[in-house]
């Protein structure tokens, strides 16, 4: 159990406000994770209805970002947080940004899922998407778990998962290029797959940012770009 606590302020209201932004960040994380899972499934199962749903629901993620940001600004204006409280508020404003970007990437994946489902030819690339999708969903899940528990060790472990995702991305690229060389008719659909794996790789980067922010909240150490 970590030593982080955002309770026991003399102003009880302040406890509640900090708890509120934490809870809402977790809700947003849950929503984004769901969007990502659905987007990946929409690709691999050629489910355009599911993809449309992801596209439609992206606006909820955007709304959550704006709401949480506003709550953070209010806390800064009202409470002038310091030390761990300040780090938490700063972390949350950054984390909602990363989560919103993950939401954007999930929407992009869903857009490509619609195009792919419309083509109805072949299934090249699905294995790559499924494989990378699983790794990325699991990494995001671990990152959010680490945040919920302020677990630095878990965050550091999860951070390392990004390396594997980058490697998977490179492997997938090579596979996809091979498909295109083997059958030039597949180029247009494989390019769609290529954008999907690109988005998955970007999501890995955002999940990595989340992990770095957890370390910042708990330890006060900035480990970015190291």
């Amino acid at each position: 159990m970590s030593k982080m606590s955002f309770e026991n302020h003399i102003m009880k209201q302040f406890d509640e406000e900090l708890e509120e932004i934490r809870t809402r960040l977790m809700e947003m994380g849950g929503k984004v994770e769901q969007q990502l899972q659905n987007a990946v499934r929409a690709v691999t199962e050629a489910d355009s209805a599911l993809a449309e749903m992801v596209i439609k629901e992206e606006k909820f993620v955007d709304e959550m970002e704006v709401d949480i940001d506003e709550a953070c600004i209010l806390i800064i204006a009202r409470r002038q947080p310091a030390a761990s409280d300040l780090r938490l508020v700063m972390m949350v404003t950054k984390a909602v940004n990363d989560l919103e970007r993950i939401g954007d990437e999930a929407k992009k994946i869903a857009n490509h899922a619609v195009l792919l489902a419309g083509e109805k030819t072949g299934s090249q690339g699905y294995t790559e998407v499924r494989h990378m999708g699983q790794s990325v969903v699991s990494m995001l899940n671990n990152a959010l778990d680490a945040f919920a528990r302020f677990d630095v060790d878990a965050a550091m472990r999860t951070l390392e998962e990004d390396k594997k995702i980058d490697l998977d991305y490179k492997t997938a690229l090579r596979e996809l290029v091979t498909y295109m060389m083997e059958d030039p008719r597949s180029i247009s659909r494989v390019i769609n797959i290529l954008w999907v794996v690109r988005s998955l790789e970007r999501i890995g980067d955002h999940a990595k940012n989340l992990c770095e922010q957890i370390v910042f909240v708990v330890k006060g150490k900035d480990i970015r770009h190291q």
Binding site: M4, T23, M26, E27, D145
Partner: peptide, 14 residues
């Protein structure tokens, strides 16, 4: 997953 990620209650600051 949503259930799992409820922030953990802290007891240390008392």
């Amino acid at each position: 997953t949503a259930e799992k990620k409820k922030p953990a209650k802290k007891t240390t600051a008392k």
